[in-house]
Simulated assay, not measured.
Amino acid sequence: MSRYTGPRLKVMRALGTELPGLSRKALGERNYPPGQHGQKPKRKSGFGVQLIEKQKLRFNYGLTESQIQRLFREAKRAKEPTGEKLLELLERRLDNFVFRAGFAPTAVAARQLVRHKHVLLNGRAVNIPSIRVRAGDRIALTDTGRKIPMAAESLAEPALARPEWLNFDEAGCAATVTRMPAADEVPFPIEVQHVVEYYAVRL
Rank of each mutant, 00 (worst) to 15 (best):
R8A: 13
R8Q: 11
R8E: 10
L9K: 13
L9F: 12
L9D: 15
K10H: 14
K10Q: 13
V11G: 06
V11E: 08
V11D: 07
M12W: 08
R13F: 04
A14C: 06
A14I: 03
L15H: 09
L15S: 12
L15I: 03
G16Y: 02
G16P: 07
G16S: 03
E18H: 09
E18I: 01
E18W: 03
L19K: 01
P20N: 08
P20F: 00
G21Y: 05
G21H: 08
G21E: 12
L22F: 05
S23A: 15
S23L: 14
S23G: 14
S23P: 15
R24N: 10
R24D: 10
R24W: 11
K25C: 04
A26K: 14
A26S: 15
L27A: 11
E29K: 15
R30C: 05
R30I: 05
R30S: 09
N31T: 00
N31M: 05
N31L: 01
N31I: 01
P33R: 03
P34A: 08
P34G: 11
P34E: 10
Q36C: 09
Q36A: 13
Q36W: 08
Q36Y: 09
H37G: 14
G38T: 12
G38Y: 09
G38F: 10
Q39I: 03
Q39W: 03
Q39Y: 06
K40M: 12
K40V: 12
P41G: 00
P41T: 03
K42W: 06
K42H: 15
K42I: 07
K44F: 12
K44R: 15
S45I: 01
S45H: 04
S45A: 05
G46V: 01
G46S: 13
G46T: 04
G46Y: 05
G46P: 10
F47P: 04
F47L: 14
G48N: 11
G48C: 05
Q50R: 12
Q50S: 06
L51T: 13
L51H: 09
I52W: 10
I52F: 07
E53P: 11
K54I: 01
Q55T: 04
Q55G: 07
K56Q: 12
K56C: 10
L57M: 09
L57Y: 00
R58K: 15
R58F: 01
R58C: 01
R58V: 04
Y61V: 00
G62P: 14
L63P: 03
L63G: 03
T64C: 11
T64I: 13
T64V: 12
E65T: 08
E65K: 11
E65Y: 07
S66P: 03
Q67P: 07
I68M: 14
Q69M: 15
R70T: 13
L71G: 00
F72V: 00
F72K: 01
R73W: 02
E74L: 02
A75G: 11
K76C: 09
R77E: 06
R77F: 02
K79E: 14
K79M: 13
E80Q: 15
E80V: 02
E80D: 13
E80G: 02
P81D: 07
P81C: 05
P81I: 02
T82F: 05
T82Q: 12
G83H: 06
E84A: 11
E84T: 08
K85L: 13
L86H: 01
L86N: 04
L86Q: 04
L86F: 00
L86C: 08
L87Q: 12
L87S: 10
L89T: 04
L89I: 00
L89Q: 06
L90C: 03
L90S: 02
E91F: 00
E91Q: 12
R92Q: 05
R92D: 00
